[in-house]
Write a protein that binds this DNA or RNA. Structure first.
Lengths: 349, 349
DNA sequence: CAAAGCACTGCAACCGGTTGCAGTCTCTTC
DNA sequence: GAAGAGACTGCAACCGGTTGCAGTGCTTTG
């Protein structure tokens, strides 16, 4: 554990170096390095002896030294502007987990709002010589305010706008919305309304288009216009009242743009004495469990698979780092419908 | 931007090294290094010339090389088992942000459940030679299943149990609960109940004790026993019914162990036709805005200052890394009451 | 005028690994 | 028995910075 020849101040705990291992195993540094990395050829006995010594000494290779010579840091950067964490955290978890399995660590740059501080973080990552960069945000039609053009390292985008020629990963909002709507149709609903978030979000339009497409394929008409507004409970709550106050004709199902809106809708119905799912079926979007599961009844909703998105992005990034050719463009990964009790039918969860 | 003498394969973008800067500025590597770091003595003209060349070449010092010789990586590790992100994300944001200002980057290890994978991550951080470690979790009375004893690097604990002799940062649950209860008392409430989370959590007991203490100081008796159960809306919902079904005598305020419980309580009251805050005032705990603000009415609640916790922990860790003596023990940082509309009185937000 | 002092600058060692190439030893093969 | 092949092993250069110490030239002091 201690370097005998250390010249550093006593007190500071000193890790064993490969020279310590080599000396104690009676081999050269070269052989020690090869024994530990499984490269080169040597007698099995030598290799095992070196490995045993390394274990005895609690040796940890210094990845800075390794990185220096290999021109790789086995390190990635994750850049986000999502202070909220709703989207970033699952992505980060999926990324981090998949990377750990491959010996790669992830630098986190979270919660920076000002472009200046974000640029500062980016610079720090350049100096750390990260092998690649994952850029993620909180909406698919905005890009982080950082200049990545002259970066000279592979970059992938996750849940963020992807510039021309870039490589991006987003959920397939269109087909997810279509799937959610088809689920309602299969359960016999025919008058399906759509309450969703801000019309300035591309995601809102994609989901609306999916809703339209599913209806059209089944020869149904949308129930009224899509109701755009904030992605909040308050909007869902208000929109539900609007839908049931104004119309003589009432929907028998509502596809909501996210779980918070769905939650607001359900709350309004509770107050109006409208039964979910008997009178109206509801589908949410996001599978934010803290909402979806706590709603009464628990929400059937779309899971965007953000964890998987993070993982896929990480793997693609590793391929790029290793020089494998990767096709540019946006990948839309499939989403999953999580069936609970807000639509009736059989609930699997 | 390009090393003229590079021997590496063409195609790979090659950063300028300090040798490139030195050569182009017509000085030795030593002088270049000093010019860029602001150390040593030299003519102002030389220093400026070197700095200008560095800028022209878009030079980025290689922090692996620097770390190797300085025996510091300017890197921290963040270890957590909070897959949920409720506690970790604010802590991580506060930490990351404060560290960025000081030129230190943070490795994230998130979402690992199995001790084995967590240990793997810890090992990766050792190899990366992180200067220190922040360990955080999702409850203050549990420690992560990692062996940190023989690590030989400074460690701080945040929102986690802190072993003897360690340095920990947690919110001051007791005084926060006392403050919340006193807020209710000041508003004229006298019959204050307490609905909280699992009795196996230390936080639940500290908050209960704070509730008791505030009441006692004002010569009031607690309204019934504290109602322990899950930290969920469902529990708050059920407990509210129980409280108002069973008792002839009814509370005029409820201090809730977290915002989700408070939310459940408010929902139950909405259904029972009980007005908040007119009939019953409610205080939550956590200031999880997505809940606290969306509740009708918005919740007055305790903010634990997790971001600040992360920042303080990071600064303490830096001090330790720099060899400054730090007193061992647990620091309980003060919380803040966020006044909204669920208690009446004047709402500041 | 010599010696000391000071301001600049650079040589060379070092951090802890990896790896191309060469050397040594043993075993075949002709 | 000598040459060649093959299996191990190690020398030394290198990655890109930092830093102790020495050297140079100029100014100041006795």
């Amino acid at each position: 554990m201690v370097t005998e020849t250390s010249t550093r101040p006593a007190g500071a705990i000193q890790r064993a170096t490969i020279r310590d291992v080599a000396a104690r195993a009676g081999v050269s540094v070269t052989t020690a390095s090869r024994a530990l990395n499984g490269t080169g050829r040597m007698s099995e006995e030598t290799r095992l002896r070196v490995q045993q010594v390394a274990k005895d000494l609690d040796y940890r290779p210094n990845s800075m030294a390794r990185g220096l010579v290999q021109q790789r840091s086995f390190t990635l950067g994750l850049l986000t502007d999502d202070t909220y964490g709703r989207f970033t955290l699952p992505v980060a978890a999926g990324l981090s987990s998949a990377m750990t399995d491959r010996g790669v660590s992830v630098f986190l740059s979270a919660g920076e709002k000002e472009p200046k501080r974000m640029q500062l973080n980016l610079r720090a990552m350049e100096e750390k010589r990260v092998d690649g960069l994952v850029i993620t945000g909180k909406r698919i039609d905005r890009c982080l305010p950082v200049d990545v053009s002259s970066l000279g390292m592979p970059v992938v985008y996750v849940y963020s706008e992807c510039p021309d020629g870039g490589i991006g990963f987003v959920p397939d909002d269109f087909n997810a919305a279509k799937m959610a709507t088809e689920h309602l149709i299969k359960l016999g609903r025919r008058k399906i309304a759509h309450i969703t978030g801000m019309s300035t979000f591309k995601a809102a339009h994609l989901r609306k288009a999916g809703w339209h497409a599913a209806l059209e394929e089944h020869g149904l008409a949308p129930f009224g216009e899509a109701l755009f507004d904030n992605w909040t409970e308050a909007h869902g709550y208000a929109a539900a009242f609007q839908l049931f106050d104004a119309a003589a004709d009432r929907p028998d199902a509502i596809f909501c743009g996210n779980d918070q809106i769905a939650r607001g809708v359900v709350d309004a119905f509770a107050q109006l004495g409208i039964k979910v799912p008997d009178d109206v079926a509801i589908v949410g979007f996001d599978n934010w469990e803290v909402f979806a599961k706590a709603t009464r009844p628990p929400l059937t909703t779309v899971d965007m698979g953000l964890t998987c998105l993070g993982k896929s992005a990480g793997l693609a990034l590793l391929d790029m780092i290793e020089g494998k050719p990767i096709e540019a463009g946006l990948r839309q990964l499939p989403c999953r419908l999580v069936v609970r009790q807000s639509c009736g039918g059989e609930a699997s969860e």
